[in-house]
Simulated scan of single mutants.
Amino acid sequence: MVSGLVLSGLTVGYRADGALRRGRAAPVLSGIDAVAGRGELTVLLGPNGAGKSTLLRTLAGLQPALGGSAALDDGDLLALRAPARARRVGVVLTDRPDPGLLTGRDVVELGRLPHTGTGGVLGPADDAAVDTAIDAVRAGPLAGRPLARLSDGERQRMMVARALAQQPSLLLLDEPSAFLDVAARVALLGLLRRLAREQGLCVLLSTHDLELALRLADRAWLLDGAGGIVTGTPDELAASGAVGAAFDTDELVFDAGSGTFRLRSGAGA
């Protein structure tokens, strides 16, 4: 039995207006094979437009796959109906929703809806799950405060807690550190790495914070910008030249030894 997320020949993309009637689609990524294990932080990397968000949205059930399969703990992830998927998959998107008058705890309680139904009445087990999620992200002091008054970093901790309150097997995050300062980015990725280990979660997140991701991740999925993927540990991808091939520019080059970018000789002179 494979524990975690396994993609086999997965193809994701879109059906443009009119293309659906002709049975044609526009793949963004084709024939993807990749594994993200439980207890590990896996980062999804790639240039802008490479397909990171498209892949995450497909795994989250927000758009259909065009081919292939995705298994979660040997079950068919793509075949799950929405209520069952909401109990297995937690999702944190880049969007910054308007929280209105909701407190941090109110938002985390929304994560129990897949278990309580539309009535939303929380029982003792639901309250315990909410408490556990808040404690897991060490956000107890934030729980009673209005979400609108929290910093971006604090708000993201509550969004992660909401996803954890679902008690998922898989946690998907699309650019969760996009609006955070450097210290908050480090704290968030460190938090997600710890949660993966402590709760046996499969955590997959996309990020443009390449250097930090390569330092903290257990595994990386690197989209090459041409519809393909390279996977491995961060050290393996750096040493193979795959990171440099995807991100080097006329001015900057990735140094595999230090795991950082440096100016090319003569650049900026």
Rank of each mutant, 00 (worst) to 15 (best):
T207A: 12
G244L: 11
I229S: 10
G49S: 00
P168G: 00
R219T: 12
L172F: 01
L210T: 13
H115R: 04
L59F: 01
R85Y: 06
G119N: 07
A34W: 11
L20A: 15
G123M: 00
S206C: 10
G123R: 13
A148K: 07
A79E: 14
L110H: 05
T132G: 12
A217W: 09
G61Q: 09
G46E: 02
P64A: 08
P141E: 12
V186K: 08
G123Q: 04
R105V: 03
R138V: 01
L263A: 15
A34D: 11
I134P: 00
G241H: 10
L170N: 07
L171T: 01
V92P: 07
G49P: 00
L195H: 00
L77P: 11
E154G: 06
S240W: 04
R157A: 12
L204R: 09
D33C: 06
A148F: 00
E211V: 04
D224F: 02
A217G: 07
G68L: 09
D224A: 04
L150W: 02
F261V: 02
V35T: 09
R21G: 15
V230C: 14
G9S: 09
A82H: 08
T58D: 00
K52R: 10
M159V: 02
G104I: 00
G232D: 06
D250V: 13
R197D: 12
A26I: 11
R262C: 13
G244F: 14
A86R: 00
G241D: 13
S69L: 12
A239D: 14
V92Q: 04
T58G: 00
S151E: 09
A79F: 14
R15T: 15
D131M: 03
E251V: 15
E251C: 13
I229P: 00
P141K: 07
M159Y: 13
T11M: 01
R85T: 03
L170Q: 07
A238K: 05
A25N: 08
I32G: 02
D131L: 09
P176S: 12
S53P: 10
L170M: 08
L204F: 08
A267K: 05
Q156R: 13
A136G: 07
E109Y: 02
G268N: 01
V253E: 15
G244C: 13
M1G: 08
D218V: 06
R197S: 14
S177Y: 05
L180D: 14
T231C: 15
T260F: 12
R194G: 10
R81D: 15
L62V: 03
D127L: 14
D174H: 01
G90R: 04
G39L: 12
A125I: 06
Q156S: 03
D235I: 05
L102T: 03
T118F: 14
Q167D: 14
A246I: 02
G104P: 04
A139S: 05
R81M: 04
A184W: 12
L192V: 05
F179T: 01
V243N: 03
L102Y: 07
S30C: 13
L41M: 09
P64L: 05
S258D: 12
L41E: 09
L192M: 14
G144K: 01
Q199L: 15
G241M: 13
L214F: 06
R197T: 14
A79D: 15
A238Y: 08
S151M: 06
P176E: 12
T103K: 01
D73C: 06
P64T: 04
A256H: 08
L164V: 10
L147R: 09
V186S: 11
R57V: 00
L7S: 07
E198M: 05
L44S: 08
L216G: 01
I229V: 15
